[in-house]
């Protein structure tokens, strides 16, 4: 694989911006902006995939870039926006910890993720192996985004962001997963969001809210 330094720089910039978007999602209070950030993350992922496909000449990466564009930039955000409109949940998402606290936890997580990815990166032989650390960080930050939210909607966005991180990790470690796996995961995610969309309506019907702490009580009379 012949990488010029400019390609690597562009890829690294994409990776750094992915990390930044993950932090933005962590600190974002509004669900509508959260979905927009998810679309932005998908766009960055798509750009990184295209760049990698062009440089390595692996044609299946073009296909997965197209898949990313269709699903993560257009499809799922549109679906989520429609759900937000239908459920009328424009409200603030009330993170459990305040924003500077979440930032600090996020930064510690990134350090942890970089340490975690170091041995994996040494095993990988790709030119983009340094970005594995960023992928792990994106996954863990998405975890924190899910943990610190109470509303079902933002947890789903966190889940999708985590999937983005996994995808980016596979891309930077081995230049993408086999096509079958990728298609399978994409379909899974799509179905998951559709099913969770139905769950949202059920949860709201039952509790008049999308706040998941209602699900923690065992008895119905509370």
């Amino acid at each position: 694989m012949n990488f010029t330094s400019l390609d690597l720089q562009l890829l690294n910039t994409c990776a750094a911006l992915l990390l930044l978007v993950s932090f933005a999602m962590l600190s974002q209070r509004r669900i509508v902006s959260l979905v927009n950030l998810l679309a932005l993350q998908g766009t960055l992922l798509c750009a990184a995939t295209l760049l990698l496909a062009w440089r390595t000449g692996q044609h299946h990466l073009y296909l997965s870039a197209a898949l990313t564009l269709a699903l993560k930039v257009v499809g799922l955000p549109w679906l989520l926006h429609r759900l937000i409109r239908r459920l009328e949940v424009y409200w603030d998402t009330e993170p459990l910890i305040n924003m500077p606290g979440a930032m600090l936890v996020g930064l510690v997580t990134v350090v942890f993720a970089f340490g975690l990815a170091q041995p994996i990166a040494e095993l990988a032989s790709t030119a983009t192996r340094n970005a594995i650390g960023i992928a792990v960080a994106v996954i863990l930050l998405a975890f924190i985004t899910m943990i610190t939210r109470r509303k079902a909607m933002s947890q789903v966005v966190g889940f999708l962001s985590m999937e983005n991180g996994l995808f980016f990790g596979a891309m930077s470690a081995t230049y993408g997963m086999p096509m079958v796996v990728e298609l399978g995961v994409a379909l899974d995610v799509l179905v998951a969001v559709l099913v969770l969309g139905i769950f949202f309506f059920q949860i709201r019907e039952q509790f008049d809210s999308l706040d998941l702490h209602h699900l923690e009580s065992l008895r119905e009379d509370q």
Binding site: M103, V111, I134
Partner: peptide
Amino acid sequence: APEFLATAFMFAVLGLLVHLLLGA
């Protein structure tokens, strides 16, 4: 204001981490 400055701190540390990891 602390939130504003925490964001600034986050950007700075992120720059540091990105430099350490990617060397860029």
